[in-house]
Write a protein that binds this DNA or RNA. Structure first.
Length: 268
DNA sequence: AAGCACTTCAACCGCCCGCAG
DNA sequence: ACTGCGGGCGGTTGAAGTGCT
């Protein structure tokens, strides 16, 4: 036989913790520690709570040295960088931010950072589209060629990226076959049709970062990934910008990155 | 002042993995 | 070898707070 059930779910209290419950839990742990057994702890501490609930309350709220309040620019950048690399592994991200809990970071991401990234992506997309349309109008002889997906795809070298992945390699646009090729993970602006403009991972990049990804074709040689990967791409751009205020104007960095010297050289 | 929409975040839910029994 | 609990984790929910009309 296994162990006995951790608690009688019908008799335990749920919902917000009262100051009295907080005091009991804190006093007990201050005096005795957790004892490595959360299930037995509420009974010993005189609490009518499930052990898991006690653990959560302690770790996320009562534990000493917890930070509450706004996240700093550095913390923003660390979160973006780690999210871009490992995704929603909040406990690992929290381990890099002393005083922050995984729940804090998860909430912060879901309520603020994600919106900033999505907003920035939308602005960058609009910026990218307007640049293309003006370019097409001003160059009548090459308009048909410029409208093709691969032709519109700029080179996006990313530098100063930290381990475990190295994204500093270039990607190459094969104009004759209208395909994108890469010798290493990197970001691309696919420039695909049907509203698919924006910042996307190429296949190699996505698999390197997330392990596996569903790939949706969007015209020859262009790939659009799901929301998580898209946000990871945007987070990666922001994290490597070296300036947290880019969160407010991410499209400017993204644009400068996408239309940098290497892109100009490739286009030339 | 009232009603509604939106945001925030504490807490719960359900799953996975390791390990006690 | 097998069962099932305990700890840990990410996803989700819903009450409270806030802002807008």
């Amino acid at each position: 036989m296994g162990r006995a059930p951790c608690c009688d779910k019908a008799s335990v209290k749920k919902g917000p913790w009262s100051p009295e419950e907080d005091r009991k839990l804190k006093e007990y742990i201050d005096e005795n520690g957790t004892g490595g057994n959360w299930i037995a702890l509420p009974h010993k501490a005189g609490l009518k709570r499930c052990g898991k609930s006690c653990r959560l309350r302690w770790l996320n709220y009562l534990r000493p040295n917890l930070k509450h309040g706004d996240f700093s620019d550095d913390e923003d950048r660390i979160i973006c960088s780690l999210f871009a690399t490992i995704g929603s592994r909040w406990s690992i991200i929290a381990a890099q931010l002393p005083g922050r809990t995984d729940n804090d970071i998860k909430n912060y991401w879901n309520t603020k950072l994600k919106k900033k990234l999505v907003h920035g992506l939308e602005r960058y997309t609009a910026h990218s589209l307007s640049q293309r349309s003006s370019s097409t109008v001003s160059s009548s002889s090459s308009a048909a060629v410029a409208a093709s997906p691969a032709e519109a795809a700029p080179i996006v070298p990313l530098q100063h990226l930290s381990s475990p992945h190295d994204y500093s390699h270039l990607i190459y646009s094969d104009r004759e076959q209208q395909t994108l090729r890469t010798d290493a993970p990197c970001l691309v602006d696919s420039g695909g049709g049907g509203g698919g403009h924006g910042i996307y991972f190429d296949e190699t990049c996505a698999s390197a970062i997330s392990g596996s990804s569903v790939v949706h074709g969007l015209g020859t040689g262009n790939f659009v990934f799901g929301g998580l990967q898209l946000l990871q791409a945007q987070a990666l751009l922001l994290a490597t910008s070296g300036a947290a205020n880019q969160l407010d104007e991410p499209y400017s960095f993204a644009a400068s990155c996408c239309y940098g010297e290497e892109a100009a050289a490739a286009d030339g």
